[in-house]
Nucleic acid binder design. Sequence first.
DNA 1: TAAAAAATTTAGACTTGTCTAAAAAAGATG
DNA 2: CATCTTTTTTAGACAAGTCTAAATTTTTTA
Lengths: 216, 216
Amino acid sequence: MNTLAEENYLKSIYHLALSNENVSTNQLAALLKTKASSVTDMLKKLADKELINYTPYQGVNLTVAGEKIAVNIIRKHRLWEYFLVEKLSFKWDQVHDMAEEMEHISSNELINRLDKFMGFPKYDPHGDPIPDCNGLVKTHDLKPVSSITPNQSGTICGVRDHSTLFLQYLEKQSLTIGKTVEVVEIIEFDHSMILQMEGKRIQISREVANNLLIVL
Amino acid sequence: MNTLAEENYLKSIYHLALSNENVSTNQLAALLKTKASSVTDMLKKLADKELINYTPYQGVNLTVAGEKIAVNIIRKHRLWEYFLVEKLSFKWDQVHDMAEEMEHISSNELINRLDKFMGFPKYDPHGDPIPDCNGLVKTHDLKPVSSITPNQSGTICGVRDHSTLFLQYLEKQSLTIGKTVEVVEIIEFDHSMILQMEGKRIQISREVANNLLIVL
DNA sequence: TAAAAAATTTAGACTTGTCTAAAAAAGATG
DNA sequence: CATCTTTTTTAGACAAGTCTAAATTTTTTA
Ligand SMILES: [Mn+2]
Ligand SMILES: [Mn+2]
Ligand SMILES: [Mn+2]
Ligand SMILES: [Mn+2]
């Protein structure tokens, strides 16, 4: 169907389009760790295949066909991550790179059976929604911990930063998916926050608070 | 580490080397569905990497390093086939092509955990032995049904032909792994055989008998 | 709004893996 | 052993995906 490189470009365009209407060449180059000139070449190919709308110098967005492919790759990525954590006992900070390879296994029959085997999970180990077999994504509305005020509380449901370093830090602090935290105090000087969780107090920096997502 | 193409060449050399001391360019071209000239090019690369011993015009064989890689690919192939059949309920004739993709997932930690998750299976759905995590392969000594004589019996433990068509035929006749069959009669004219299995009689052609493997 | 800066595209090259056609080597045959 | 056939390698080309350097377009800034 599509090459591995094409799939990775479509996926990256999809992710970037969540925060930008049109995705720029340089944004893609940064995310894909490649050069802008390589991106331009690929954008022409994807436009020829009618998977993206591309106007030179104006950035790109996905066509319906392109979005469908992107969402399917993301579905596979997240289902494999769920499998690795729930069935093979990996930690949430260990699974991303493996899933980057596994998301390109082509069979949809396989992924649908895997989905069923695991009981149709709704969220991956990082709290990201798993698109269903029709490509529907439930985007729940998450806020960073940094956006709430003292005495408010919320349940941890996701992360903005998916890096190993951040996930390991959260794990160590027991700041994991499903935990409920309450803001006790915000330090004015550096905007760090003191949280109450399961009877304990944890202090987190502003940067951590920006990258930890909750629902109220 | 190695590219997908390199891995496929090494795997093919390994498979062919089971019946030939030295593997020829044309044998590889046929198995890999490519041209002899492409094979020659790749053999030079693999020889440069010291994964094969290659003397022009004399065919190739794997070095210890090359065999290690080949066996690991085969281990992954067979474990994923086992997973697809035992956990995702695929039929034995449906899993080969998916495993051809999955065998290239690189993580050994992943495959070792998958192995454990499934209880360290010894044989794949087609009866082929699964190499252990140290690369040891238990090659049991199988004979084709065609090699036994009336009144002898054996247990089906493998197939020589792995094609979908053959596997589906066997499935339909209930000639599956683990079944015990006894030779009742051999038709002199075409060497077809009449087998007794679970109280029923089944007639199979010489070609089927050649490709169905048993232990006595 | 003209020059400077940044972003993007184009030009040309390189790698991997493939192909066809031609040359060379090995093996078979009389 | 000379020739014919088969196998294998070489030569040259191509597609995909990437790169660097240069040109072009857009955006910012003075
Ligand atoms: Mn991930
Ligand atoms: Mn994830
Ligand atoms: Mn197989
Ligand atoms: Mn098999």
